[in-house]
């Protein structure tokens, strides 16, 4: 068969498309972990948190988080009984070494609030990335592709929870990965592993046998900044109204 110039012109685009799909390759087979079988979140049981800072230290060790930056941190709230709008919040070095002891306050209350990336299903941080370097994975974890990130910090500004930072050495966005390298191996996150009271619990919302479902049904649970409609998947049990 003779290929005329006309035939060639028709064939070339088709060939280019075919070549592209060859280059894309087949999705990597992962025998022990199916991304579509999970939808990760976390439960934070505020009445159980003792402010020991184990989670902060474990996160820094597990993920090589530089000093002064935090993928998770603990805040201590002090709220006067009537002054919900003006809580006094401290978090010395992210709560890494715990908190100074306080005496009972007859006119107010103290409590701890651990914070981390809320792994939002409709996250503002992924929407603003101009290069597609941050995304929500098929199993519901917001991740940063640090080879693709150019460090513009749009996402750092977009996160309503202040959960992102620019890594001082790598000059790219960094954040909680929900210990993706652990949860895909069947382990829990470093922070949940070391939490002595079970105040933090990893939750797989797609697993019908996960205790999170029974907990959500029987407790008053809230997410942070629900008015922002971010689809946050870090659920706080007995969250005080003063928490921002």
């Amino acid at each position: 068969m003779n290929i005329t110039r006309r035939h060639l012109m028709l064939l070339l685009p088709a060939a280019a498309v075919a070549w592209e799909s060859v280059l894309a390759g087949t999705p990597e087979a992962s025998p022990n972990y199916t991304m579509t079988g999970h939808w990760w979140g976390m439960l934070i049981d505020i009445p159980k948190c003792i402010g020991c800072g184990n989670c902060v230290r474990a996160c820094q060790a597990e993920n090589d988080v530089p000093d002064g930056f935090f993928r998770t941190w603990v805040e201590r709230y002090h709220v006067d009984d009537w002054n919900l709008a003006n809580p006094q919040v401290i978090s010395p070095d992210g709560g890494k070494e715990g908190f100074p002891s306080v005496a009972e306050d007859p006119d107010g209350k103290y409590f701890f609030v651990p914070k981390l990336c809320n792994q939002c299903a409709d996250s503002p941080c992924t929407q603003v990335c101009p290069v597609g370097a941050t995304f929500i994975s098929p199993d519901g974890v917001v991740l940063v592709d640090q080879k693709y990130c150019m460090g513009c910090a749009y996402c750092v500004q977009a996160c309503p929870y202040g959960c992102r930072y620019i890594h001082p050495q790598k000059r790219v966005a960094d954040k909680c990965t929900l210990c993706y390298h652990r949860i895909t191996k069947g382990l829990t996150t470093a922070c949940c592993e070391v939490c002595p009271t079970g105040a933090r619990q990893l939750a797989d919302l797609k697993n019908p046998n996960d205790p999170i479902h029974a907990f959500l049904k029987t407790h008053s649970v809230q997410v942070l900044k629900p008015q922002m409609a971010t689809g946050a998947k870090v659920f706080y049990n007995q969250l005080d109204g003063s928490v921002r």
Binding site: S30, Y33, D145, K147, T184, K185
Partner: peptide
């Protein structure tokens, strides 16, 4: 990128 992040080493 997902597989790269999942391949990071464990400390705990």
């Amino acid at each position: 990128a997902i597989a790269e992040i999942a391949a990071k080493p464990l400390h705990y």
